[in-house]
Design a protein around this nucleic acid. Structure first.
Lengths: 196, 196
DNA sequence: CGGCGATTCATAACAGTGTTGCGTAGGATC
DNA sequence: GATCCTACGCAACACTGTTATGAATCGCCG
């Protein structure tokens, strides 16, 4: 039953796909190496050969999640008006989270006990800031935004988006709360707060 | 070894205390019913009598966490100027989170797999909004803030605070980032965005 | 005041988990 | 074509939360 000398890439993808499905269907708790291996037709040891362990398998899902996030952010059409553009990115952020809620959980909550993102994963997550920072930098340069380090403003905008989505997912928002409307208003008000 | 007919309140407190210590020391992953029971000098079944199971035990820690949070929020001295006061509450929010990081993890990340807050716990968490909402409501009434539902503004402010703290804990912020300064600036800018 | 029913909690077993030695099949290398 | 190396199957290990059983003892009612 040996495989080629290099890791079996097809098996790796099958494991990753199925792991994503299991998590999407029943949450992170439902991801068991035994079940995963059985579904894919291999054994748990394969996960250790290919990834190193369960945390590293989840780590692969983590980078996949940020890859998708990044893709959706890049696809947002921009106008050049900073408040509008920051609001659009924020809305896309929420749409992305709603599209892959369980991936979002892996990225931003510690829903898989042993898993801690490593340095490479953290670098990747910080890359999410890039489009935000570009917009902010231009706005500061043009004097539309106050003269504060673009990084600070960008992080602030990311914070609102992330915080509201996080509260929504946690069930911390009031019942019968019109999340979508409030979310957009909050994004816009926050961005406006940086106007010069 | 029977205990009084009513639950042994002292044992309940000892379990809760020790559980908090274990989590504070080594994170949520380190909370095992066996170790907890051994440390306290009882058996795992006591947890089932007193709480119902591990999720419910964690639920008790969840409400304890929000109780402390609420206490710290109430202790914040207010000035009557909404932007300033909202900023102060936001800073207190971060201080609270840093003071009890593992309790914070229980409250806002799903770090204990089986645990989902029940309705009562959710009501409690939403009570965190109360002081924010009072400030906002007054500011809207006085015409200092724009005429938007106070709930929406309050949730927005909570979102920034929560989001930034959450990103900080997740390691999503840039390295060598002056979190404290940026955090305060972001809170202030966000609140200012709601000025009429 | 005494006995009964109810309930807490100890003991031990169960089902499940991630992880790890061991063994082996079979491509890669010379 | 012989040899090495490695991915991976099997089975065991240590651990988890949970639960069936049973003993001890309290609150309650006559």
């Amino acid at each position: 039953m040996a495989r080629p000398r290099t890791h079996d890439e097809a098996l790796r993808l099958k494991l990753l796909d199925r792991a994503g499905e299991l998590i999407t269907a029943d949450g992170a708790k439902a991801l068991s190496l035994r079940k995963l291996a059985a579904d894919v037709g291999t054994s748990t040891t394969a996960v250790y050969s290919l990834f190193g362990g369960k945390p590293e398998l989840v780590g692969a899902l983590y980078v996949e999640g940020f890859r998708r996030f990044g893709g959706r952010m890049d696809a947002v059409g921009l106008t050049g008006e900073p408040v509008e553009d920051l609001t659009r990115l924020g809305l896309a952020y929420r749409v992305s989270a709603l599209a892959d809620p369980h991936l979002y959980a892996i990225m931003f909550t510690r829903s898989v006990p042993g898993f801690e993102p490593n340095d490479e994963a953290n670098d990747l997550s910080r890359a999410t800031l890039k489009p935000l920072e570009d917009i902010v930098r231009a706005a500061v340069a043009e004097g539309v935004f106050v003269d504060v380090a673009p990084e600070v403003i960008a992080v602030g905008c990311w914070g609102v988006a992330h915080g509201l989505v996080s509260l929504e997912f946690n069930g911390n928002l009031p019942p019968e709360f019109d999340v979508a409307t409030a979310y957009e208003a909050a994004l816009r008000a926050n961005a406006s707060g940086w106007l010069a």
